[in-house]
Amino acid sequence: MSRTERLAPWLFTVAFFVVWEIGVRVLDIGTYILPPPSLVFEQSWVFRQALFRNSMQTLYTTLAGFGIAVVFGLALGIFIGWSKTIYNGLYPVMIGFNSVPKVAVVPVLVLWFGIGTVPAILTAFLISFFPIVVNVATGLATLEPELEDVLRALGAKKMDIMLKVGIPRSLPYFFGSLKVAITLAFVGSVVSETVAANSGVGHLMLIAQANSEVPLVFGGLLCLAVLGIVMYAVFALLEQRFTGWAFRGQDRRAA
């Protein structure tokens, strides 16, 4: 990547805030509708402790829900991908499950577990395990039949084929899905915090809005954006590290 290419995301981010600042000032938009970024940053600094504490709470519920989603999603994905019959039988059920908006499930979770951390974790889990399941199952189900023949003719059991070929082969799908899943988990926990919690960035934004602290509401949004980018980046990096072979680019070829 060239220097300009590397710098481009930063330049665009800065440009975004500059345009926002100028736009708000030129169009004379009230701070209670859209505060300029300078004010958002200032207020965020004033409330840095509250923002930090609640961000950590959100991060915690997100990662906890995501962690459960990874374990459960991987297990269910392998189970579904194991045979065509299971795949065909369970896939429609999964689709049905996934089509239910997870916000609608939050009241049920609150009913069962009360307001607080648990519904946030569970919402994050429920919303994020689906892409993991689908990707792992698809990775396993799209195994080349010839390769399966080669191994079966040698007396390989289903387990051998899975361990030697199926699971390594579906790893790029798995890591790819983690990037999507972590972002979704984040959505889940913030939604749940906004509806039913007494801590977390979602909750903080709700309180700030009730108190007409509009710059702080946007401060919360910025925190969410930063957390989201960091988590995405971490998992994109993990993906590169573990399944670099699936991204066989020109530079590796030359190496």
């Binding site: 080349e144 010839e146 390769l147 023949d149 080669v150 079966r152 003719a153 040698l154 007396g155 390989a156 070929v165 390594p168 082969r169 790893l171 399944t243 072979w245 699936a246 066989r248």
Partner: peptide
């Protein structure tokens, strides 16, 4: 499965990892 056969196909299907 006879277990004494080697097989090769039109597609070499090597494992990329």
């Amino acid at each position: 499965p006879v277990k004494i056969a080697g097989m090769a196909f039109q597609n070499p299907i090597m494992l990329p990892w």
